[in-house]
Design a binder for these strands. Structure first.
Length: 562
RNA sequence: AACUCCGUGGUGUAACGGUAGCACAACAGAUUUUGGUUCUGUUUGUCAAGGUUCGAAUCCUUGCGGGGUUGCCA
């Protein structure tokens, strides 16, 4: 079983090290993890980190990972979310097989265990109001005070709890609490609430219950019932672990899972909390949960990020207990790395300016052969029509070029990608002085594949589209949703930091003919511009493309530095 | 202030008492029919002070700094 020492094993994070130890010591013979979303919202990149961790460990260790919906709060949860969560996990490339569970499946068992706690004097029914309970809990420096109902007899508690279940009481009238220690320095141990009364319709159990277990009372026992070995969650649950363990110690559970906490994913220039994402949607700052600017899984999918890139990103950022903020550039680097290898190349002109080749025959069309992907010779080639009238990118021409500008300008020559050398002979403007057309000549001896016999060179190659063959399209240019690196920090609302230029719609883009057959969801490269994904808003005669991410742009950088 | 977790280049992450490495970012150069890709090189780091040790990012102490916790949310 020993690896040859020559293999530079990728360093393991502290969680995998713990698993290794547990396997080596015989504490566990296998590994079972779980991903436990609450079905009250859409999954985002933070969840992706947890999904990659839990399902990734299951794959690596030949174990399994359960998908368990933590559905203990009927007032917030909906079936709609259950389905979207399943879709997103599958899209990320993971599968729970037959191990789909719901915490609500355990309601009866959980109830019996609550009775068990009451019988052993470790739980009681409290008649105090929410407000009274809050006040008597004390605070970070002050111990709490015990409830006047704390010492009810076991018989009374049994009777009352049974009547709570039977619906004899109104919402909030009573709760079941654990009987632990009202002066414990960890507030979670100050007689936490186990059950509350909620006369609400549950998405799975309907009206079978009017009392619902709290997260703390549910999670660990669900883990134990499923024989989860390692229950991985984020840092904010660290203070809950003593309570998690308390239940396992005081209940006849079938297994002893271990909770381990790691730091959640933070990304700059975005927000990740469900509440804030929901706010962006409900207040209309974005078009929906799947707006391509959203850090939701459905958003990045629509944006065109490949799942492989998300997985590699999660591998790159690692797992630690240190609360850190990851650079958005790291995510984009993962996206570019995958797309550079896999995306087909096409030409598209986003902001067109017409070029007429005065020495090229009218009504003549040549089919130029172009590589589908220079990084992947197997991808083959495509034909691109070439003719007398073309479009080129407006920013690929400058009448008065600054130093180091390699593209087209009056009198200079560039290569058209997969086409010919052209030289700009004349600039045509309208009355307003706006450039409307360039008159150029082409060199017949420079057809793609051959260079001019006189050995002359050009300093740039630019993209183009044949005017008569062009497909009209809308292109949506996305930028980061927030202008500030940490929208959460500082005074005021995070909404104050929204980037007003996060979406720019170009409605006059001209695409290479071959792009008309691109399918919704497909991500391609527009040469020299970036990666673009076909949006579901596309129609048969008018495709819509979303910019996934731009190519690195050394010129923009040089220009910016002036 | 109580409890608790955590501090390694600009960012993220390794090094498990023995040469502080990798990725991203930045910068410089080479290649290039994408100012992309690829390749090469450069800059930048162990929070602080003591202690243990032949030797400390690592162990100990203290200090400093950051996160989390006062829902009948998860």
């Amino acid at each position: 079983m020993t690896e040859p020492s020559s293999a530079p094993a990728t360093p393991k994070d502290f969680i995998r090290e713990i698993i290794d130890e547990d396997l080596a010591s015989g504490k566990h013979s296998g590994t079972v993890t779980r991903f436990p979303p609450e079905p009250n919202g859409y999954l985002h990149l933070g969840h992706a980190k947890s999904i990659c961790l839990n399902f990734g460990i299951a794959e690596e260790y030949g174990g399994r990972c359960h998908l368990r919906f933590d559905d203990t709060n009927p007032t917030k949860e909906e079936v709609e979310y259950v389905e979207s969560i399943k879709t997103d996990i599958h899209w990320l490339g993971f599968d729970w097989g037959e191990h789909l569970y719901f915490a609500s499946d355990y309601f009866e068992q959980l109830y019996e265990w609550a009775v068990h706690l009451i019988r052993s004097g470790k739980a009681y029914v409290d008649d105090q109001t929410a407000e009274e309970i809050r006040k008597s809990r004390g605070d970070l420096q002050t111990p709490g005070t015990e409830s006047p109902f704390r010492d009810r007899s076991i018989e009374d508690n049994l009777e009352l709890f049974s009547r709570m279940r039977a619906g004899d009481f109104a919402d909030g009238e009573k709760v079941l609490r654990a009987r632990i220690d009202m002066s414990h320095p960890n507030l979670n141990l100050r007689d936490p609430v186990l059950y509350r009364i909620l006369h609400a319709e549950h998405h799975r159990t309907g009206d079978a219950w009017c009392i619902y277990p709290m997260y703390d009372y549910t999670h660990g026992q669900s883990d134990a019932l499923e024989h989860i070995t390692h229950s991985l969650c984020t840092l904010e649950f660290e203070n809950h672990r003593p309570l998690y363990d308390w239940f396992l110690e005081n209940l006849p559970v079938p297994s002893l899972p271990r909770q381990i906490e790691f730091s959640r994913l933070n990304l700059n220039y975005t927000v990740m909390s469900k509440r804030k994402l929901l706010q962006l949607v409900t207040e209309g700052h974005v078009s929906g949960w799947d707006d391509p600017r959203m850090p939701t899984i459905s958003g990045i999918r629509r944006r065109g990020y490949p799942p492989e890139a998300i997985r590699s990103f999660c591998k790159t950022i690692g797992i630690t207990k240190f609360e850190s903020t990851n650079d958005f550039a790291l995510l984009e680097a993962s996206v570019r790395e995958v797309l550079n290898r896999t995306a087909s190349r096409y030409m598209a002109v986003l902001d067109p300016i017409k070029v007429v080749l005065t020495n090229y025959p009218a009504n003549f069309v040549e089919e130029m052969e172009a590589m589908m992907n220079p990084e992947d010779p197997e991808a083959g080639s495509r034909n691109v029509p070439f003719s007398r009238e073309l479009y080129i990118e407006r920013e690929d021409f400058m009448e008065v070029p600054p130093p180091k500008y390699f593209r087209l300008s009056p009198g200079t020559e560039v290569r058209l990608r997969s086409g010919y050398f052209i030289r700009c002979e004349e600039v045509i403007k309208d009355d307003a002085g706006e450039i409307v057309e360039l008159r150029c000549t082409y060199d017949p001896e420079t057809r793609s594949g051959s260079n001019p016999p006189d050995g002359r060179k050009v300093k740039a190659t630019i993209h183009w589209v044949s005017a008569s063959h062009a497909v009209d399209a809308e292109v949506r240019l996305y930028d980061r949703l927030f202008a500030s690196e940490f929208p959460d920090r500082g005074e005021g609302s995070f909404l104050d930091h929204l980037n007003p230029d996060s979406l720019k719609v170009l409605s006059n883009a001209k695409l290479e003919r071959n792009l008309s057959s691109a399918e919704i969801g497909e991500t391609v490269q527009f040469e020299r511009l970036g990666y673009f994904c076909v949006d579901p808003d596309s129609t048969a005669d008018r495709p819509v493309f979303n910019r996934t991410v731009g190519l690195k742009d050394a010129w923009a950088k040089a220009k910016g530095q002036g």
